[in-house]
Amino acid sequence: MDLDVVSDNFAFMMGGLGLTVQLAVITIVCGLMLGTLLALARLSSRVWLYWPATAYIHFFRGLPLILVIFWLYFLFPVITGKPMQAFAAAIVSFIVFEAAYFAEIIRAGIQSIPEGQSMAARASGLTGYQTVRYVILPQALRNMVPALVTQSVVIFQDTSLAYVIGLREFLRRVNLVDAREARSVELYLFAGAVYFAICSAGSLASQRLEKRRERMSLA
């Protein structure tokens, strides 16, 4: 075991972490927004909203992420005639894919709120949008926090798949160093440690958040 290979290439590898974080954050933010819209559409009584959203969610949940990335990167240019940038292909695939998962979490969260809440809100004259915005979503979001954090951690890990289209995120850089130095054991243990540390920190933060919320609601 020779950890010099890690320290020698530390800056180069960690440089990819910036891209990894960027991919994860953009995916989480945009995925949440798209996921919320999909969830609301799926809960709608309007058929023209319900069916497309339902089909979308089933479609993407039935495919491996790596396939979606391939499609976007290799198939899309064939259809449009324009080349697709690797970053754009990765980020778009992540967002459309993860939105399907977020949508199901959000739908379950919304459905966990008793019907009487929306009835009370609507009875007071609030519109459907206001009911969701001020009464349902704030309560639903609280219930969803643990599941959303778990999914965000998964997304952080999933970003490593961007390496298949040559994006030099963290894992790809580790991979490149290994190709040159041939020290797979040290390098991949190091990569694992980095992912583990960041994801654990995320989970820990969410546990804290939940505990604080419990304390607040007991106060």
């Binding site: 009464v135 309560q139 609280r142």
Partner: peptide, 11 residues
């Protein structure tokens, strides 16, 4: 309107 189970907004 007033409901059997109050339906106050808990948040």
């Amino acid at each position: 309107m007033v409901f059997q189970h109050f339906e106050l907004y808990p948040h």
